[in-house]
Amino acid sequence: MIEISKKKSVLKLENLTIKFGGLTAVDSFNGYLNEGELVGLIGPNGAGKTTIFNMITGIYKPTFGNVIFNNIDITGMKPHVITHLGVARTFQNIRLFSEMTVLENVLVGEHSWLTNFAAQKVLYKHNPKVYRRPKWKPWFWSAVLKTPDYLKMEREMRDHALELLKAVDLERYANLKASALPYGPQRKLEIARALATKPMLLLLDEPAAGMNPQETQELLEFIENIRKRFSLTILLIEHDMKFVMGICERIYVLDYGKIIAHGLPKEIQNNKKVIEAYLGDEVYV
């Protein structure tokens, strides 16, 4: 059984459903994430895991259901606003800005600091007592005219970006083109870039894909590490069962768009439905 945690809820997905034409890709998904949790989302190929990520981050609009982040209904909000509110993600097939340097990739994540006015408004509307009244600043003109204000901001962004790179141990590659990095560091860079947006919730889409057992082990420690350091709540999609069992506190299992199991790693391991779903697909269990 799962203990009902007293901790603050970070993400709640209520009856999340999406249909593409006649196909129901995700069918009334209910789930939650509490502060500081690390939860896995697993299931065979095409089960709708990434689609759920796309609905959380606003790339797809759910047909029914709600996405509640930090008690704010973010269903149907624009992707950039959702990012500014504190949801960051990585992609299954690494999507770095490969023509830009490693440092610049992280700095792009920090650009959101200048342009989060819409998100500030959402927060203020949600709770005027806690959040400050949003103040719009003509950052664009400051950036073009290079005002002291902007230069100070740029310095802060750079320092923070370098700090992040240090944290993920990529500092020495800072001025290298992102495409020049080996595969493992590219994954790390994608995570660092996501962290640059100062997220509360991090969505990792198959972070261990294409890694050998040793690299996977390192990644495991790495994720644990950043979770503590940046006090993150993490939802991750993964195929590698060993990885999921080793790191996740709770697991949702998805098949054909529906939850077929939900529980602690141990419970999932012995769940008949899960084994059935995976047989004939990838037998990791």
Binding site: F97, S98, E99
Partner: peptide
């Protein structure tokens, strides 16, 4: 910073959106 954002979105709009 705006120029970096422009270069980023010229490479990959989906990832740029996800970066806010």
């Amino acid at each position: 910073s705006y120029g970096r954002a422009l270069r980023a979105l010229s490479e990959d709009t989906v990832a740029a959106r996800a970066m806010g």
